[in-house]
């Protein structure tokens, strides 16, 4: 293959590869390392500049000293640990077996198109998880049951709102309101302390993954994207509190 064409083809591939990885919540160092590993397999060198919403990358062919630069946006994709794992494995596969760029592209597409876990199964698991979370915060079995039900309804609503293309922050406020409203409604006639159950009913939306990944990025000197991830997580927590406070105002007359 023409060396110049190969450089262009590889640059386009690395741009897509890095964009998908970053959009899926992978920390920067892994993205840079994997991209470098793939480029080394084709005797190319890569330099990357990662920003919160885009990547600027330059590939250099040391033989011809030709340079190719591309700017690619990072699309917000759902976090996927499977994609993280499989795409890392793909970079090692290329490194060890030297496949053609076309084969690499084909495998990449197949991995990206792989179906995610069944939506109803995820809803069930999240509901059980949040009920267990209620127990970890010293909630009783009645509270756990209420949290399970309100999480189930809330998570389905979140999925539906996302499908309809509603803004993520607005969706979090709405879901937080509905989940806490349901939990408050179910507990308002009982004598038990509802505080733990109501507060836990919205915690399934706490952005734990961006919080941890953001700190990893900061530790590994990718300060900008680290702070961007933490700020997004903070905004989501803020939205949670807003939704919850609306239902508390309805049920208790005041936030106290």
């Amino acid at each position: 293959m023409n060396q110049s064409l190969k450089l262009k083809e590889l640059t386009a591939f690395i741009a897509d590869y890095a964009s998908v990885l970053l959009g899926s919540g992978v920390h920067c160092t892994r993205v840079v390392r994997n991209s470098r590993r793939i480029c080394e397999a084709y005797d190319m060198e890569v330099s990357m500049m990662i920003l919160a919403s885009s990547i600027i990358l330059t590939l250099v062919d040391p033989q011809t000293e030709e340079i190719c630069t591309e700017v690619v946006p990072i699309h917000q994709l759902p976090v996927s640990f499977e994609l993280n794992s499989e795409l890392s494995a793909l970079s090692w596969k290329v490194h060890d077996r030297h496949e053609s760029v076309a084969d690499l592209r084909r495998e990449f597409k197949a991995l990206c198109d792989k179906p995610r876990m069944n939506s109803w199964l995820v809803t069930l698991l999240v509901s059980v998880a949040n009920a267990c979370f209620c127990r970890l915060f010293d909630g009783d079995w009645k509270g756990m049951l209420v949290v399970f039900f309100s999480t189930f309804v809330g998570f389905r609503l979140l999925r539906w709102l996302k499908k309809k293309g509603v803004d993520h922050f607005l969706a979090v406020i709405l879901v937080s309101f509905v989940s806490s409203f349901l939990a408050s409604f179910m507990l308002c006639f009982s004598q038990v302390d509802a505080t733990i159950a109501v507060a836990t009913s919205v915690l399934f939306m706490i952005p734990g993954v961006p919080m941890i990944t953001g700190v990893i990025d900061i530790i590994e000197n990718h300060i900008l994207i680290g702070f961007a991830r933490l700020m997004r997580a903070l905004l989501i927590v803020l939205c949670l509190a807003v939704g919850l406070s609306i239902s508390m105002v309805i049920f208790q007359g005041s936030l106290l």
Binding site: G25, P78, V79, S80, F81, E82, L83, S85, E86, R116, M117, L121, V122, L125, V126, S127, V128, A129, N130, C132, F133, R135, L136, F204, G208, V209
Partner: peptide
């Protein structure tokens, strides 16, 4: 032990949102 089991199921559920591979 109860808390350990609850934590295991909480991790499984919250992790499920992030599409982990089955082997993990």
């Amino acid at each position: 032990l109860i808390r350990a089991v609850c934590a295991a199921f909480a991790a499984l559920g919250f992790g499920a949102v992030s599409n982990p591979s089955r082997k993990s």
